[in-house]
């Protein structure tokens, strides 16, 4: 219904377009609004526009190491894109990206939400323990990912030792094509849980206790309160957490790169590790195809971003 409302009530989405339709008071408000946005706009232009442009430009030219240095690479249009889309690595890498992202997000979010609800019931040491959950984020990824590789080592890893202790056979976590993708996914879930926990916890704290009191007066059970009060009120925070989680997971390459280099035999190669391997993981860098794969990832994120904005609009018809 609201979507068919006349144009002026919808939030305009473009800086371009006709003159401001509202009165002079509105115009002053618009100036104030943009006043607050000046720093961020300048910042975006200064720091992101150039790398973004650079990534686009790299993907549209045929770069060799020589033309990279001399700056005279010929423009080749979408040749690099065609090259990576028809490469035998593309389809498996895309599939691995989907599995890695979906499984990571599902577990990170569910575990994060469960923990947030748990920690929301204040108990002795709860704040301290919640803070300790963030410790993995203090470690440079090279350390945390190496530690995971250490624990998952086929021969001297502690996980296989533990499996042995309970009578299960060893698993070649990182060296078997059947397991490598699961291993890096597990490590990535571990990295992502604290993020979900902390953001969702703040989201829970923003829900007014009065709402719960009202629900309790209505005789709602714990589950009903969660289902009909917590979840709907947490939806905006959940949506942004999932969206950011998606962007970060699509982008993950260091964990996989450090743990398996995308192997063995490409079995844990995602689009982002492939992009890195093409552009930087070899003695002879292939900047063009590497950037093309990177831009395909950006396009995927863009699609989900549009989806998010659409969903947000539907909820928020103001």
């Amino acid at each position: 219904m609201t979507r068919t409302a006349p144009a002026p009530t919808r939030r305009p989405a473009s800086t371009r377009g006709g003159p401001v339709r509202q009165g002079p008071g509105h115009r002053r408000a618009a100036w104030a609004a943009w006043g607050f946005l000046v720093p961020i706009t300048a910042y975006l232009l200064a720091f992101y526009a150039y790398p973004m442009y650079r990534n686009l430009e790299l993907s549209l030219r045929h770069y060799t190491v020589r033309s990279f240095v001399q700056g005279d690479a010929p423009f080749t249009g979408f040749a690099n894109y065609l090259k990576v889309l028809t490469d035998a690595t593309f389809v498996p890498a895309l599939w691995h990206t989907v599995v890695f992202t979906v499984v990571s997000l599902a577990f990170q979010f569910t575990l994060g939400l469960g923990l947030a609800l748990f920690f929301a019931r204040h108990f002795p040491l709860s704040a301290t323990l919640r803070a300790l959950f963030l410790v993995p984020w203090l470690l440079p990824l090279i350390v945390s990912a190496s530690t995971w590789a250490w624990m998952l080592n086929s021969d001297s890893g502690v996980i296989n030792a533990a499996l042995g202790a309970i009578g299960a056979g060893p698993v070649n976590w990182l060296t078997s094509p059947d397991w490598s993708l699961w291993s890096v996914t597990i490590a990535n879930i571990w990295i992502g849980v604290p993020f979900n926990l902390v953001v969702l916890y703040s989201g829970l704290q923003a829900i007014s206790p009065a709402v719960y009191e009202a629900a309790a007066l209505d005789g709602a059970t714990g589950w009903q309160r969660f289902r009909h009060v917590t979840l709907p009120l947490l939806r905006p925070v959940s949506a942004i957490t999932l969206l950011l989680g998606l962007v970060y997971t699509l982008k993950v390459f260091d964990i996989i790169w450090i743990m398996t280099k995308g192997g063995p035999s490409g079995s844990s190669t995602t689009l982002s590790t492939w992009s890195y391997r093409l552009g930087f993981g070899n003695l002879v860098p292939a900047f063009g195809p590497g950037a093309a794969v990177g831009n395909i990832l950006i396009a995927i994120a863009l699609a989900f971003g549009l989806l998010y904005i659409r969903l947000q609009r539907r909820q928020d018809p103001s």
Binding site: I40, L44, F47, Y48, P51, M52, R54, N55, L243, L244, V247, Y248, L250, K251, F253, S272, S275, Y276, G279, F280, A291, G294, L297, I298, A301, L302, G305, Y308
Partner: peptide, 12 residues
């Protein structure tokens, strides 16, 4: 802003 975060760190 959302897209800005997708630029690979090494390109940035």
């Amino acid at each position: 802003l959302l897209i800005a975060q997708m630029i690979p760190g090494i390109i940035m």
